[in-house]
Design a protein around this nucleic acid. Sequence first.
RNA 1: UCCUCAAUAGCUCAGUUGGUUAGAGCACCUGACUGUUAAUCAGGGGGUCGUAGGUUCAAGUCCUACUUGAGGAGCCA
Length: 459
Amino acid sequence: MKRTKVIDILKSTAFGSEVTVMGWVRTKRDSKTIAFIAVNDGSVIHNIQAVVDVANFDTELLKSISTGACVSITGTLVQSQGKGQSSEIQAKKIEVFGTADDTFPLQKKGHTLEFLREIAHLRPRTNTFGAVLRVRHHLAYGIHKFFNDKGFFYLNSPIITSSDAEGAGEMFRVTTLDMDKLPRKDGKLNFEEDFFGKETNLTVSGQLEGEAAATGIGQIYTFGPTFRAENSNTPRHLAEFWMIEPEAAFNDINDNMDLAEEMLKYLVKYALDNCADDLTFLNNMYDKDLLNRLNTVVHSTFKRITYTEGVDILEKSGHKFEFPVKWGIDLQREHESFLVEHFKTPVIVTGYPKEIKAFYMKQNEDGKTVRAMDVLFPYVGEIIGGSQREENYDKLKARILEMGIDEKTLWWYLELRKFGTCPHAGFGLGLERLVLFITGMTNVRDVIPFPRTPKNAEF
RNA sequence: UCCUCAAUAGCUCAGUUGGUUAGAGCACCUGACUGUUAAUCAGGGGGUCGUAGGUUCAAGUCCUACUUGAGGAGCCA
């Protein structure tokens, strides 16, 4: 008999009809004549309860069904005689696909998230990770839907790049050279003998290629894996994470802010609308203020301030910061948190000093600041970083030279300004930080299936 | 990379000023129970105290190094 997913069984009112559920046993409670098996198949956070008349089944078969076992149960869908659920399955036939012996590490009681990270291959069988993974899926889908509906095209930017001038972080090298016999030329590694004939790395950003596409087909977004070889050990950093980078021709910094704010609100609302059960579970188990916080963001207006205004607020706050505030310094995490707390809403900061931002950002008329923007969120901090791009060839080239970047590797990026240049802007959204905010989890390692962090690539 | 903290049963933890045979709850096994809800009740098995050194008559406990993990900082999404 064809299986019915738990999500559909729970919605069904076809009492008396026969259904087959396949899934993993969460708990079994038994007495002399009756047993109850709670089965979860991941389609929804809730379990379906199968009621077993012990007399009708082989004792050994029932004994082999323990927490973690995978079973197929066929029976009659009935209204529950007990409290706690409205419907259940009166079992007629039980097949055990796979038992789980006493070494199965997931028990019915709670586990710490740290322990579950060590058994990432089994995490999806828990309520928490089922919820997080489903929310993550819906958000990914919502992102595609949002941009598609706005006329943005999904761009597959390359994962292997030779660009090393983006300044976005340390990179992972990609090579097919024999590590035991590295070719040398004039004392240096000879990358001419490498697969691509030059030094290549995993991408730290698809932005530059995104700009190339946007200055041809107008509006694009990338959505793919991104790699940073930074030795970052924080709850907000991963060596491999997923980034969404929209880029739009003819957008200025204000359009860019509008897009970011609209997108974030859309996605939070999308999650609330499509992941109600999972978010309710997370709200109850981890953070009683989660749903309230999400609703607040949907109905908020993000506070937009300039870097200069931000520094002013921090200086006048009278608050003692570990890192003293002065115009010109980069905002520290304590400063960002203060601003978010100060306005009690997401904050967008623009107009940073050019010295602390990337070479490609559009320079303002004051000669001191650039049209950068950081979107700061409660709990997760910087969730988006972006800017209007410098579209003036001479200014961009001057900035590249000023910062000591090798312009040769950026020849094609400069040509975007040489031929039919146009104003444009974009930003990068860290998917894990968004999922973090929306699920109420507190560590990005718990919102990606198999986290990659320094000293950890087990699975 | 820097700072702080931690590591004891499968899991979560307790273990006093260093002192006999290292404990509990859950999980697991056995038994009881006719509708349970992280079922309940009774009994049972289960440990190289992260690793390597050191101090001491004696180390889970003190010291050193290392490993791993967590939090904070930096870097950033």
